[in-house]
Amino acid sequence: NQASVVANQLIPINTALTLAMMRSEVVTPVGIPAEDIPRLVSMQVNRAVPLGTTLMPDMVKGYA
């Protein structure tokens, strides 16, 4: 099963992502692949992401 990127904390809108904000977890539906975590660092979210939410490509500016 593919691990996805999950929010490790509440991430406010327009926040630049850091490693501490993300974790890898096997979830359904599948979100951004966990191997993309290094690429996500310093990218901004375009909405508030609650703790435990799977990051989807449309939630991260410049990812999709």
Rank of each mutant, 00 (worst) to 15 (best):
N1C: 03
N1S: 13
Q2H: 14
Q2G: 15
Q2F: 12
Q2Y: 11
Q2L: 11
A3S: 08
A3Q: 10
A3M: 06
A3R: 14
A3N: 13
A3I: 07
A3E: 08
S4V: 03
S4L: 01
S4I: 02
S4H: 02
V5Q: 00
V5E: 00
V5C: 03
V5P: 02
V5T: 11
V6A: 04
V6S: 03
V6I: 13
V6M: 08
V6F: 02
A7V: 09
A7S: 12
A7N: 01
A7W: 01
A7Y: 00
A7H: 01
N8R: 10
N8C: 03
N8P: 02
N8Q: 08
N8K: 09
Q9N: 11
Q9P: 01
Q9Y: 07
Q9H: 09
Q9A: 15
Q9G: 06
Q9M: 09
L10E: 13
L10C: 04
L10S: 11
L10R: 08
L10P: 15
I11Y: 01
I11L: 08
I11M: 06
I11T: 02
I11E: 00
P12Y: 08
I13H: 14
I13E: 15
I13D: 12
I13G: 12
I13C: 04
N14E: 09
N14I: 03
N14Q: 06
N14T: 05
N14R: 06
T15G: 08
T15L: 05
T15H: 09
T15E: 05
T15I: 05
T15Y: 15
A16F: 07
A16L: 12
A16I: 12
A16G: 13
L17S: 00
L17A: 00
L17I: 11
L17D: 01
L17N: 01
L17M: 06
T18H: 09
T18G: 06
T18N: 07
L19A: 14
L19E: 06
L19D: 12
L19V: 14
A20D: 09
A20F: 14
A20M: 09
A20C: 03
A20E: 12
A20L: 12
A20T: 13
M21S: 06
M21Q: 05
M21H: 05
M21D: 07
M22H: 00
M22D: 01
M22Y: 02
M22C: 03
R23N: 09
R23W: 04
R23I: 06
R23L: 06
S24N: 08
S24G: 09
E25L: 11
E25T: 11
E25R: 05
V26H: 11
V26P: 12
V26S: 07
V26R: 07
V27C: 03
V27K: 13
V27S: 14
V27H: 04
T28F: 07
T28I: 09
T28K: 12
T28D: 08
T28P: 02
T28A: 13
T28W: 13
T28V: 15
T28Q: 10
T28G: 08
P29C: 04
P29V: 07
P29R: 06
P29Q: 05
V30K: 12
V30E: 06
V30S: 11
V30L: 10
V30A: 15
V30W: 09
G31T: 01
G31S: 02
G31V: 02
I32E: 00
I32A: 02
I32C: 02
I32W: 02
P33E: 04
P33N: 06
P33T: 14
P33M: 05
P33R: 15
P33I: 06
P33C: 03
A34H: 10
A34N: 06
A34P: 10
A34S: 09
E35G: 13
E35D: 14
E35S: 15
E35I: 15
D36Y: 10
D36V: 06
D36H: 07
D36T: 07
D36K: 05
I37E: 04
I37R: 09
I37T: 05
I37A: 12
I37W: 04
I37D: 01
P38C: 03
P38F: 12
P38D: 14
P38I: 15
P38N: 15
P38L: 15
R39F: 09
R39A: 14
R39M: 15
R39I: 12
L40D: 00
L40T: 02
L40I: 13
V41D: 04
V41I: 15
V41N: 08
V41F: 06
V41L: 15
S42E: 13
S42G: 15
S42P: 02
S42Y: 05
S42V: 04
S42T: 12
M43R: 14
M43L: 10
M43H: 11
M43Y: 14
Q44N: 15
Q44V: 08
Q44C: 03
Q44K: 09
Q44H: 11
Q44W: 11
V45T: 07
V45D: 02
V45P: 03
V45Q: 00
V45F: 00
V45S: 06
N46A: 13
N46P: 03
N46R: 13
N46G: 14
N46I: 13
N46Y: 07
R47S: 10
R47G: 05
R47E: 08
A48H: 12
A48K: 13
A48Q: 13
V49G: 01
V49M: 12
P50E: 06
P50K: 13
L51C: 04
L51T: 13
L51R: 05
L51V: 15
L51F: 13
G52T: 03
G52I: 01
G52H: 11
G52A: 07
G52L: 04
T53Q: 15
T53P: 01
T53F: 10
T53E: 10
T53W: 14
T54R: 05
T54W: 02
T54N: 02
T54A: 08
T54L: 09
T54G: 03
L55Y: 00
L55C: 02
L55M: 12
L55V: 06
L55N: 00
M56N: 10
M56D: 08
M56F: 09
P57C: 04
P57V: 08
P57W: 13
P57T: 10
D58Y: 06
D58W: 13
D58R: 06
D58H: 09
M59V: 08
M59P: 01
M59C: 03
M59H: 08
M59Y: 14
M59F: 14
M59L: 07
V60P: 02
V60I: 08
V60H: 00
V60Y: 01
V60C: 02
V60T: 02
K61T: 11
K61R: 14
K61E: 15
K61D: 08
G62Q: 12
G62T: 14
G62C: 03
G62H: 13
G62A: 14
Y63A: 04
Y63F: 12
Y63K: 02
Y63Q: 06
Y63N: 08
A64V: 12
A64I: 15
A64W: 05
A64E: 09
A64C: 04
